[in-house]
Simulated assay, not measured.
Amino acid sequence: MDLDAYVAAHSHSWARLEQLVRQRRRTGAEADELVDRYQQVATHLSVVRTSAPDAQLVAYLSSLLGRARISMLAARVPSWRGVAHFFSDRFPAALYRLRWWWLACLAGNVVVTGVMMAWLAGNPSVEQNLLDPQAVQQLVNSDFETYYSENAAGAFAAHVWLNNTWVSALCIALGILGLPVIWLLFQNIANLAIVGSIMMRHDRGEVFWGLILPHGLLELTCVFVAGGVGLRLFWSWVEPRGVTRATAIAREGRTAVTVALGLGVVLAISGAIEAFVTPSPLPTWARIAIGILAELTFLAYVFVIGRAAVARGGTGDIGAELLEDRVSTQA
């Protein structure tokens, strides 16, 4: 390729993109032109890198594209349409695409919890090593039940939401390392198994399940979703599946951020249930029914709306318009 001729043919497009990037205010037509010019120049850079890799020209075009991309992102204003798209397409698509990871995580943790509770119930001596008799009696007779009502409901909901969001965020953030996720999940279910076995061994199983199930079904599902997504992030660099490890990690990392943001909202719902429904004077069956309804609603959201979103091409990753320079910036 004649590099001089190529520069002469396209330098006006580069100059126009420079001009649009420098402008502080743009009309709607100019904003659209900025996107079009950005895509054109990204193509030009790809051609130059492939056919006549001049270092100075490559550096100039890369810098220009970087500044243009920042300009486009800065011009994006969050809208209700964007929020609606996130919850109707991007978030459910991510949940559905990664369903086997978090369903396996959920099933594994439920089995381990059940085994731990059965073993602890059959080995009461372990209980004595964990808590002294006075602490056990206090837990069984008052502490477990009053935990849900000793603070104002609004403040308690916020506290629960922050705690659960933090645990879920850690599962996702530490997912790249693998083992820390397993440890976090084990700590979470170990506490549940210990308290549950103590309550049931002292004939307080009805109280335990009546207080755990209303909010726990949805809350624990969210934690297991986070754990499964974190483990998928770990597996993306173990087995990148035909792409570079950097590409696989970047793709799954962006999807993990999508899940983390969406789970923040779902955990707010489970936190509200824990603060307002769990300690309410409603009959136990009614409180558990609310918990089951919340869980079934979430599963329907994943397997109906999420499946439809994936069928439309959704993956949970960010929009393609934000990734236009992936080819043009490869080394």
Rank of each mutant, 00 (worst) to 15 (best):
A31M: 11
A331S: 12
G108F: 00
G319H: 05
A153M: 11
G114A: 12
F87T: 02
P283S: 09
T27V: 08
R254Y: 06
L45F: 08
V140L: 05
L296G: 15
I288A: 08
S197G: 04
G264A: 02
R49P: 06
A42H: 00
R204M: 11
A52F: 02
W14D: 06
L179V: 14
R16V: 11
E295A: 14
M116V: 05
T247Q: 14
A84D: 06
F156W: 02
L131G: 02
Y38G: 14
A294P: 13
L293D: 13
G205I: 03
G262Q: 00
V48F: 00
A331M: 11
H159N: 12
A118D: 08
G271H: 10
S270A: 10
R97M: 14
D32N: 13
A300H: 05
E219P: 11
E219C: 11
A193G: 03
R22W: 07
L57S: 14
I292E: 06
T165E: 02
Y6S: 07
R24F: 10
A158F: 10
D132R: 07
L64K: 06
D143K: 12
L61I: 10
A93F: 01
T258K: 06
I273D: 01
V225M: 09
H44Q: 15
T278H: 08
D36S: 11
A121R: 14
P283R: 03
T315L: 12
R49G: 13
L73K: 12
L162N: 05
Q138V: 03
V238P: 06
N141K: 14
F86D: 05
G227R: 12
V35S: 11
P240M: 07
Y96I: 00
I249M: 14
R254A: 13
L34E: 14
R76C: 01
F186D: 03
V160P: 00
L220W: 11
R22K: 14
S270E: 02
L184K: 11
A15T: 14
G314N: 01
F276T: 03
A8K: 12
R22T: 12
R24W: 06
V58S: 09
L323C: 08
A15F: 09
I273N: 03
W235H: 15
R90K: 09
R97V: 12
C171E: 09
S79K: 11
L73Q: 10
L192I: 15
T244P: 09
F91K: 02
V302Y: 01
L296H: 10
A9W: 02
L34Q: 09
C222Q: 12
S71Q: 07
A74D: 14
W166P: 00
